[in-house]
Each structure stands twice: as structure tokens, then as C-alpha cells.
């Protein structure tokens, strides 16, 4: 398949790191309802997220995400640890990483920004509010924000072969 030029990108690769199946379902449906040109990839714990980002094991074909939506409280490797890992890695640090957590604890908010989270979003409990939020994330992050090209940020990331990626949202 021919490489896709930056301008002609068909959709954005979104990695959601979330252990609650209900929240995964809600996010998937909300992105679908927002009619976004996204492909949502899901990892359900921190260790799997790191494996996905490094294309280890079953994730050898994983695309480089354009944006990561990261929950804080995760099994195996905590979201704070995943965030620290991403932001200390020369190749991964340029991927915008949004914290999406039910916590509104100021300590969690401050800590996340100290670890260089790109933004912190509190997850609402109500479905309507959740939909509004996903729409807002879509409008701002996926329509307005300029992302680094997948190829430039790291030599090891090729442009994704559109046929090879696993699950699409």
C-alpha cells in the first residue's frame, strides 16, 4: 500500500487505555456517534499499553497512536507509571497523552501535569455528559490540534499498513 501523506490521512489512531469494559463500550459508542474518523485501539491495563506502544508480543503490528487516552487507575502498571514511561521515552514523548479519569483529586491533576500529561479530563458519570465530552475531545483534539507525523517522530515507526491493524472503532 502506498504511504499516506500527512494531508491525506484518513483517520486518526487513538489508543484508549482503560480497564472498565463499560467505559470502553461508552467511549467506543461515543466516538462512533460523534462520527469521528478515528480508529480506536484498546488496552485494558498499563502493561499491555506499554507493550502496544513498543509493538511487543501480539502487538507487533500496532500502529503508532496519534493520541493516547489514559485512565489513571489501571491493573498491573498504574496509569501514572504508564504516563511517566511515555514522557521519558524519546520516541513516545511526542505523542499527546490525555488523562481521562474519574478522579478530580487536585493531587492527581497536579501530578499528571508534572509528569507532562498533555491534558487532564475528568470522566463524567452520566452518559449524556460523557457523550458531550467525547464530542468535545473530538472537536478539539482530533479536528483542531496538529499532530506530529507518524514517521518523523521516530525512525522505527513506519506509516501504518491500513489492512494490517487489528481492531477498528
Amino acid at each position: 500500500m502506498n504511504p499516506i501523506p500527512e494531508e491525506g490521512r484518513k483517520y486518526l489512531e487513538v489508543l484508549l487505555v482503560e480497564d472498565s469494559p463499560g467505559d470502553v463500550l461508552l467511549t467506543r459508542e461515543a466516538f462512533r456517534d460523534a462520527n469521528t474518523a478515528t480508529r480506536l485501539h484498546v488496552t485494558s491495563d498499563g502493561a499491555e499499553a506499554i507493550a502496544f506502544l513498543h509493538r511487543e508480543g501480539e502487538h507487533s503490528e500496532a500502529p503508532r497512536p496519534d493520541i493516547i487516552l489514559l485512565d489513571l487507575n489501571l491493573p498491573k502498571v498504574d496509569g501514572r507509571e504508564v504516563l511517566a514511561h511515555i514522557k521519558q521515552d524519546r520516541s513516545l514523548k511526542s505523542i499527546p497523552t490525555a488523562i481521562l479519569s474519574i478522579s478530580e483529586n487536585p493531587a492527581d491533576i497536579t501530578k499528571s501535569y508534572q509528569l507532562q500529561a498533555n491534558c487532564y479530563i475528568a470522566k463524567p458519570a452520566q452518559w449524556d455528559a460523557f457523550l458531550v465530552l467525547v464530542n468535545c475531545i473530538n472537536d478539539f483534539w482530533l479536528k483542531r490540534v496538529k499532530f506530529p507525523a507518524r514517521t518523523v517522530a521516530s525512525g522505527s515507526w513506519g506509516l501504518p499498513d491500513l489492512g494490517s491493524s487489528k481492531k477498528s472503532g
Partner: peptide
Amino acid sequence: DFWLTKAKLPP
């Protein structure tokens, strides 16, 4: 809409 209403800013 995003930064000043939806995002949680550091206290």
C-alpha cells in the same frame, strides 16, 4: 471550550 471548560487545569 476544551481548555477552559472541559479540561481540568492544575490547581
